[in-house]
Structure formats: C-alpha cells, structure tokens
Design a protein around this nucleic acid. Sequence first.
DNA 1: ACAAAAGTGTTTGTTGTACACCCATGC
DNA 2: GCATGGGTGTACAACAAACACTTTTGT
Lengths: 229, 229
Amino acid sequence: MAFKYKYARPALTADCVVFGLDEEDLKVLLIQRGMDPFAGKWALPGGFAMVGESLEATARRELSEETGLKNVFLEQLYTFSEPDRDPREHVVTVAYYALVNLSEHRVQAATDARNAAWFAIDDIPKLAFDHEKILKVAYERLKGKIRYQPIGFELLPDKFTLSQLQRMYEKILDRELDKRNFRKKILNMEIIGELDEIETDVAHRAARLYRFNKKKYDKKVNEGFNFEL
Amino acid sequence: MAFKYKYARPALTADCVVFGLDEEDLKVLLIQRGMDPFAGKWALPGGFAMVGESLEATARRELSEETGLKNVFLEQLYTFSEPDRDPREHVVTVAYYALVNLSEHRVQAATDARNAAWFAIDDIPKLAFDHEKILKVAYERLKGKIRYQPIGFELLPDKFTLSQLQRMYEKILDRELDKRNFRKKILNMEIIGELDEIETDVAHRAARLYRFNKKKYDKKVNEGFNFEL
DNA sequence: ACAAAAGTGTTTGTTGTACACCCATGC
DNA sequence: GCATGGGTGTACAACAAACACTTTTGT
C-alpha cells in the first residue's frame, strides 16, 4: 500500500531534547541508532509523524516507545527544515525539549533494543544528523527561559531543599549564585511553600523541604506578577 | 505525475504574520482568499512548502508572491500541527512573523488578483483556518520579544526620532511610557546614534533623527550587554 | 570534637520611578 | 503670539550585590 500526492512532500518528524538533572550535572537523554543512516551513532529520540496526530503527540509517542518516559514536561523548541539535514531526503523536524527529574523517572530499555543513556551536557558524543545543532538551540532556550519562567522545578523532585533549587540554577546557568541573596529572592516571591518536613539520611544538618505552589504562582501571574530568576 | 510514499504524510505549509506600524496603529497584513476552503475570507499570507526549500524560504517566497514584500525581517514563530486545523486534510504549518515599516514597503497587488490589506491589530476580521490563534501567538511573542531584543527598529524607518521610537513601544506594549525616563534609558544603552539631521515638514520644533547602530549593538552584546526595554 | 552543609542581616551602590517646565518652530 | 511637540534634571524608593558567622546534625 502506498500514498499518492499531486505534489512532492517533505517528510515530517519530531525530535526531543530531554534534560535531566542529578547531583552532579545537567544531563541529556540520547539513544543509539539501530538503523542507517547513522547506525550506531547517538541521536535525539524522535521519529516520523503519523497523519492525524499533532507533532507534540508524535514527540510523546516516540519518547515513550524509545525510552519509556511518559507524562513529562514538554514544549516546542523550533522547527528545522534545511533540505539537506537528512541524507535520505528532505525531512522537516519539529524539535521539542523535555524536562524530567532523574530521581522520579527511570529510563527503560527501548522496546526495539536500542540503547538509551544520559550524557552530561558538556560531554556529548558526536550526534547523528543536525542533532548537535538542535541540542545547542535547546540548551540556549533552557538557559534563557529558566530565568523568567518557573520551569526549573520540573527538573527537581516534588519536594526539594533550597540548596537543591540553587544548585539547579547554578548548573543550568553555569555560574555561581549567592546563597543569601538567592534565598531572599526566591522566598520573597511567595511561590514556593515551606513544608513541615526535612531531609533524611544526610550526614549533616537536615534542610527544610519546599514545594512549588503552582496555584499561587498562577494567581500571582494573573495579578501582574513576573517570575524572574 | 504523482508522488508516492510508503506512509501517509501530512501536508506542510508556511504562514506569515506581518506586522507594520503607521502613525496610528500596529497593523497586520492579510490577504483575501480566492479559493476554497474559506474562499473570500481573510487569512495570513502563506502556502505550501516545496521539497528542497527550507520553510523560511517557503515563507519568503509566498510573502513575495502574494504581497510583493521582500527582504523583510522574518523569524520563526511556532509550528501548528493539530490534525483538524485544515478541513481538507492534516496540514502542518510553520508560522513566521515579519516586521516591516509601512513607509518604506509598499504592498503590491497580488499576482493572482487576491486582495492584500493592512488591518489594525484590534480590528481584525474573522480569519480562515486557525489563523486567529496564530495571530494571537504572534502578537504575544512580539510583545514579549520587543522588550529584550532590539527588533522594534525593524518597524521604523532607518532614521527616526526618539518620539517615534517611544510611540512604537507604546503601541506594541499597549501602555504609556514616561518620556524622560525612556530617553534616558535608551540613550544610555549607546546603541542608537544621533545624526546631524532633523525632521522636516513638521508644524512644530523639528526633532533630531537617530539611527540604530547594529555594529555597536553586536559588539556590546559580545561584551555581555543585554538589551532590555 | 570535627566535618558538612543549613540558615540568617546589614550595608552600599545601582537602577527605576515620578514628576514640570522651558524651548524651538511653523502658522 | 500661540499652538505643538521637543527637549531636559532631580529627588526618592526599590532592588541588586557584596559579604561572614552561628547553628544543627551525623560520624
């Protein structure tokens, strides 16, 4: 069975740049390609769009099929359409970026035996297609957006300490922040709530846990509030 | 002649939200559709992607064919891919937004006799497809981006007065700005250069003309400068 | 008792905001 | 000479930045 069209059409794919954070680094999830072109090379998870599904749905489906990840924060990044970005034919890809927290999302082996693995952001291997370029655009977007949208919480567990939060910003923005000023600023926003819980199993004074209060944030936004680092 | 593919493919288009500024308003360029679906309705300029051309090239080609506009500032906006956004079949569109200055770009009659006309941003007719949604996203983007990127100059003539510049920001951000503070801020950035010229043909004291200095701006950006309203 | 990170205020400098009058030009 | 927008400075408030020590807990 084949599909016929009066005019030629580029192929359409969705690719995902999945960011995760652990104690050490900001990491990116890559899969090892099983087939040509670029068989054996590492690449962004992604695949061809089906007719009748939105490209966000494509991205989520491929992410789930290739890595087992579901229900993650996902936003459209950019559409890459240079005719020569795929050696086979003209393939337009709509790129998305996802944020997950590594402690709550285990990556499963892909169903089709492809490898999936996390790589530190500054230790990325050569990638297939123009995926290095896509990754670069995604990292720039993340760096920019994290300063004026409260998306960083997606990289942390539901309950987190202020130090974890600060470390997250430091890792992504790639610079150190002053502890007292950071706490002052973030607490004054009144969008994260103090819990009646503290850390456990740490070899020093246990820190208080906090949780992002999305309801309060949305309310404040409606009243003109602007999140900013 | 027809093109056959093993799997069905969505169609691909590019659409443009073209913003222009005149003395009164922020305006948007629309074309009146000649064919079904939505024959007679106003819509964003745009059309189908050809294999082998990037979608930005598609956008520029269609803009030129339908409105005569060339060499305009154009940036990718967002990709809209809901399967039901076109009643014919699944059509994915990559939307762009363009900024032109109305005094230097005259819009020509479309070659295929479609009407093209400017509409004030708060007096837009019902549009074809999901173009109202696209326009809304574009306007939001413009409002946000103009505050931290010096793209507003694209809406003004090459040489402009500080009052024109201020009016431009006021029209787009939809709020008034203080004249003295505005001038202080923009001049302190040292990215617009004072010219040895003044306005002509005005019925009051003629204002000094200025020009955006892109070289100086790029240099300052390299040194860590950040434009902000 | 020591190691390790938690937690906490004040001072200083910079930037934003509010505000009103005189000036130059064309008619 | 009058109407129209052009052009300018200062005072106060708010926010950002720099900075060091005490507290709690586990080993």
